[in-house]
Amino acid sequence: MNVAAFVVLAAMLTAYVMLDGYDLGVGAVHLWFSKTERGRAASFAAIKPFWNGNEVFLIAAGAALFALFPKVYAAAFSGFYLPFIIVLWLLMIRGMSIELRGYFTSDIWNGFWDVAFWLSSALLVLFFGVALGNIVRGVPLDTQGYFAGTFTFLLNGYALSVGALALTALSMNGATFLWMRLDPDLRPRAQTLMRALWPVVLLLFIGVTVETIAAHPIGAHVGLWIAPAVALAALIAVYASKRAGGALAASSAFLAALMASAAQTIFPFLLPAFRGGGLDIYNAAPNAYSVGTALTVTIIGVGAALCYGTIAAYRMMRA
């Protein structure tokens, strides 16, 4: 059951990356993508009805972590206090920029929120990537599982390269989304942008994968090659795809496979310590009844949300 809890948590974070991934990506390329008011307004219009629902996956994943593994929630959030609060501020600024841009037809007002939207989206993606990199690499923990290192420890080469991969991969994802959703005359630009980002993503992906496998040898476990292989295939399909819908599906699969690779690397740990040990799915879990309750609630709630979310999105996009 603790394994199931791990899988559900990883799946929720993956859903977050796939869904909020497109609106974060739209933000990360916002200033480069379009210099005209019409293009920028169109980018916002494409994500406005959906971004909040997507972001709820992050909130729900955080809350599920709280209920399933309270010790990890407590140790991780307080251990990385300042980076975490900065993430909260960036989420707030980003939310304000999406809601407030377009309220007036004023270049000053909209220009301000354009920059805020771009900066907060890009920084968030970078932060998430660096955080993921550090988790995969392991961080110094004390006996209670609280972070016992320094801030500079977190800025290592590996984590920064994961951050760069996250930023470019989501930018590419955002460009692909725009290619699919915008009016026909704006699409070529989005496609060009996507193709320009692609080689960078490929290089970073190969670099990060080699580094990861060097540190956590896969060896004989053939099954563990699946996720990286799917990621590579999906990435190639992004470039090869002639249609925007296909490219977006491939790009989402690429992101999901990346998350799966990260999850299988740290399993069964949730917060691995730098030189072995750490908080895992057994030592951080409360009693079985508590884990079972949280697991049931999460599966029912998220399952229902996926159903009605799909129905609602379908009805909205049909028009």
Partner: peptide, 25 residues
């Protein structure tokens, strides 16, 4: 959170999955 999260985490998590998704969608 570390000490009481097994209880308070439940209700907060229910709020996210049952209420926030519904409202935002």
């Amino acid at each position: 959170s570390a000490r009481a999260g097994s209880v308070v985490g439940q209700t907060l998590s229910m709020e996210s999955v049952f209420a926030f998704f519904l409202e935002s969608v």
